[in-house]
Design a protein around this nucleic acid. Structure first.
Length: 575
DNA sequence: GCCGTTTTCGGCCCGACTGTTTTCAGTCG
């Protein structure tokens, strides 16, 4: 088949996930798990599944046995899965839609369908209003009310951007930490893992006076209303619409609880399996021996991992993407530390579409402790009417020199952000590029090209000898624009061969390259540059989200060129 | 459907909560 390699892995995984879902609705007990486990393994597989199949090594994938191997072969050769098609025929359409509702699972969805013939949410709403649901087994009057409420609330489960949520949540943590009654307090959940989108904020604390901590939490100025207020757990809705939960646990359980509430769910499941192998049990209260019931660990996360025979695993890695095997074999990445970036390589000023002067940005960067900053305003292409002409670029160069002479403690590099045309050419001439310290280029229009054309466009751009960094490589905007269709294997291989660095753009709605692609690119020995894409001095803080993305992508300081001191940076940039 | 220093058969992560029951199934995180 001539399907692009990564699409095949995705497709196989997607079909298996769907089988898993339908089997779950059918009431199968363990098969859904088996399909979901295999789907996850295939999704995060580094090799192209078609290659694995050609080498006859499908059954070496964890969770894939003879039967699933045969089904994978079927998908690779025919693009279809008959087993799934039969399941789809067997199960009435719409049952899944019902099961997606809050409070309705596969069992109840099937009962509603079998007993009342309901196949849509509208049908369900009508039946609930008519009081026809209360007499079904397992349902009552209250069920009808809850069904109506969850139908009304559909679509409300929005996810927020990491960059929006993190500062707010850190502020809450600081306020709680400042209380004399608080002993320990930490972020948990997807926010602690720095996932790119966040469903709700989880905070964990220990205190001799939980009630006082709960009181303060529920009456914070950022709280809109209190949902639940209990002795050990409270939930509030913040002014932004975001939900936040605080749990207060016993001190000797803090580590186990932090581990548990940090997740991810899949990581926890894998960890508990590991505990079971030793006849131990792991839950939010601690690690304990199954036969004696004796507690083994729980005070700190470090202790929990250590007793399981593992080194500490950074929260950003806890996605069940191979981190537990890597921990076992001592091959976890040495995650790039948050403080290790020495400069920002993607900054705009009022010379193009930024809001502030070169001096203002340089001084702000200097106060963040950076050694250098690259001013990379847009070139004057068709996309950027406010981009710089070559004459303006020369004048900007003079201003950069002057800032370098007068602002102490920071080196300002002269750069540009070019646009990559549909044929792969850059919108600035080589004569202009050769004198610059750093040349960025990215796609700013024409995102929806067919995959092979987009790949060619990128490959062509990377032939330019002055190009240093491809910025926001996939062009995705989180929750707004899908990533461009790119053959990542070709893209990464070319970047590595041409010594072109790939940006990890930290701007809150970009985070591009995304974490999973960083993981993949790493296999090709690609190197990266993290940039904030700042247009104001406050935006410079987005570097933190770029580093978080790099950490989630298993990257180390040596993979990131802007962890280098200025001299070494200039060497790799060839400037 | 997978998998094995407890097992080639009999397990498969764990606990809380809710609403339904009258001891528990279903759902959720």
């Amino acid at each position: 088949m001539d399907t692009p390699p990564l699409l095949t892995n995705k497709r196989v995984a997607a079909l298996f996930y769907e089988v898993s879902e339908l089997l779950r609705i059918k009431g199968e007990k363990f098969k859904p798990q088996a399909y979901a486990k295999a789907a996850h393994a295939i999704e995060t597989l580094r090799e192209d599944i078609a290659d694995v199949s050609r080498q006859g090594k499908l059954e070496e994938i964890p969770g894939v046995g003879t039967h699933l191997a045969a089904k994978i072969e079927e998908i690779i050769t025919t693009g279809r899965l008959e087993y799934l098609e039969n399941l789809q025929k067997e199960l009435p359409a719409g049952v899944q839609e019902l099961a997606d509702l809050e409070g309705i699972g596969p069992k109840k969805a099937l009962i509603l369908n079998r007993e009342l013939g309901i196949t849509t949410r509208a049908g369900l709403e009508e039946a609930a209003k008519a009081g026809r649901i209360r007499d079904l087994p397992g349902f009552g009057e209250l069920s009808e009310k809850n069904i109506l409420r969850s139908i009304g609330a559909k679509g409300k489960s929005v996810r927020f951007l990491l960059g929006e949520v993190l500062p707010v949540a850190q502020d809450i943590v600081e306020q709680l930490a400042a209380l004399p009654q608080t002993k320990q307090v930490s972020l948990a959940g997807s926010l602690r893992r720095r996932k790119e989108t966040i469903g709700d904020v989880d905070i964990l604390a220990t205190s001799p006076e939980p009630a006082k901590v709960m009181d303060v939490f529920c009456s914070l100025s950022s709280v809109d209303r209190v949902l639940v207020r209990g002795p050990t757990r409270s939930s509030v809705v913040l002014n932004t619409g975001l939900q936040a939960d605080l749990r207060v646990v016993k001190e000797d359980q803090f580590g186990a609880a932090l581990q548990y509430f940090t997740g991810s769910k899949d990581h926890n499941i894998a960890l508990r399996r590991l505990a079971l192998e030793r006849n131990w049990k792991l839950n939010e209260y601690g690690l304990s021996d199954l036969s004696s019931g004796k507690k083994i660990a729980g005070k700190s996360e470090d202790e929990v991992y250590r007793m399981l025979g593992l080194p500490f695993i950074e929260p950003e890695l806890r996605e069940d993407r191979g981190e537990i095997d890597a921990a076992k074999s001592g091959s976890l990445p040495d995650s790039v530390p948050y403080g290790s970036v020495r400069g920002d390589l993607h900054v705009h000023t009022s010379w193009s579409d930024g809001k502030e002067s070169i001096r203002a940005m340089a001084e702000a960067a200097q106060s963040l402790g950076y050694e250098y900053i690259a001013i990379c305003d847009h070139a004057k292409g068709p996309q950027f009417s406010r981009g710089l002409t070559e004459e303006q670029r020369a004048r900007q160069g003079k201003e950069i020199e002057q800032v370098n002479r007068t602002v102490e403690g920071i080196e300002v590099l002269a750069g540009v952000e070019c646009s990559i045309g549909e044929d792969g050419t850059l919108d600035a001439g080589n004569a202009a590029l050769q004198d610059l310290d750093v040349v960025l280029a990215g796609v700013h229009s024409g995102f929806r090209m067919p995959g092979h054309e987009m790949t060619q466009r990128m490959v062509a751009a990377m032939q330019n000898e002055y190009l240093d960094i491809i910025v926001h490589p996939t062009g995705r905007i989180i929750q707004q624009r899908e990533p461009a269709d790119l053959d990542l294997a070709v893209f990464f291989r070319t970047a590595a061969e041409r010594h072109v660095f790939l940006e990890i753009n930290g701007f809150q709605n970009r985070l591009d390259l995304p974490d999973i692609h960083c993981m993949k690119a790493r296999e090709y020995a690609v190197r990266f540059a993290i940039g904030s894409d700042a247009h104001t001095r406050d935006n410079l803080g987005a570097m933190e989200f770029g580093i978080a993305t790099a950490r989630r992508g298993w990257l180390e300081a040596k993979d990131i060129i802007n962890t280098l001191p200025i001299r070494d940076l200039r060497t790799v940039l060839g400037s």
